[in-house]
Write a protein that binds this DNA or RNA. Sequence first.
DNA 1: ATGCATGAGGC
DNA 2: CCTCATGCATA
Length: 359
Amino acid sequence: MTMSMYSTTDKMKMSAPSCFPGRYSPSYRSSEQMRRCMPNPSGDIFAGINDGILSRAEALAAVDIQKHQAQHVHSQMPSQIKHDVMYHHHSMSGPPQRPLQMHHSMDQLDMLDPTGSMTTLAPISESPLTPTHQHLHGSYHSMNHMMSHHHPGTLSGHTGGHHGHSAVHHPVITAAVAAAGLHPDTDTDPRELEAFAERFKQRRIKLGVTQADVGKALANLKLPGVGALSQSTICRFESLTLSHNNMIALKPILQAWLEEAEAQAKNKRRDPDAPSVLPAGEKKRKRTSIAAPEKRSLEAYFAVQPRPSGEKIAAIAEKLDLKKNVVRVWFCNQRQKQKRIVSSVTPSMTGHGSAGFGY
DNA sequence: ATGCATGAGGC
DNA sequence: CCTCATGCATA
């Protein structure tokens, strides 16, 4: 319990093991700064009461912050203190832009191709390795809301400026958008994404291909800027545990693969598989494990202030006896989690059906 | 399936 | 130091 031995955390990662410096599409992010720059009328009330709240939060965490906690201690519960941007469970919406705009110079050298053959979209189960991983970084930009103040440097006018808040597919808005000449683009429709993810998984399974296989096969598609993806990503795509933008960016790629794979399957073309060359010998990364009690505390802190300052993070880290970096990353991941397409709003719709997404 | 981590890109 | 897309390691 409570052992967080980590190893690579320090910084001994010098030669990016899993990414190619070359191909990277610009990430058009839009403005996270808006959140931070939010003119909090209350300034930084946390600065003052933070300690008290945090302590209390932690105290509560020790007891049971999972539920009825708000009334327990009669204190100022986070429930209503969320002056800060607080997460827009559904306030953000589909930025009506296109997902992939990564046109690089395909410096394709060869990108492996273990099987030696061409598009290996056929079921090639196994082959636990990491041949060539690269990223494709589609286009992402957080679509915030409000503030006419958009970022300067990041170009890509997709941010649309205002409008963006949920509802690209809202009946009325959809009509308005259409009239405006813009199209809701079926690809950005949450329902469509959900439906596709479901279809994708089903057909993938029918083809007898694993998530890992799909990821690796993507590299064989040789689409510009598209390389292999991990099992994790494929899994997350299928389960919708990705951000809306990420889903949109990945959809066309996976769709392309699916079509190719089915086409090949149709031809019954089964070619003598090939030996999977295991590069082998890579260094292992050790994963820190945050114990339950510490995790509970972190959650309590997070409920009060999802974006603690560096100093606060340091304080929390010390209090919980965790590395500062571990705590920082935990918060980052936690924030990212809330933005996942599925895990927000209602857990009942995470499955499929009709949808009512809420992001 | 998911927790913790890395790194590019950006202020 | 953040956000985001992604991945390794692991439960």
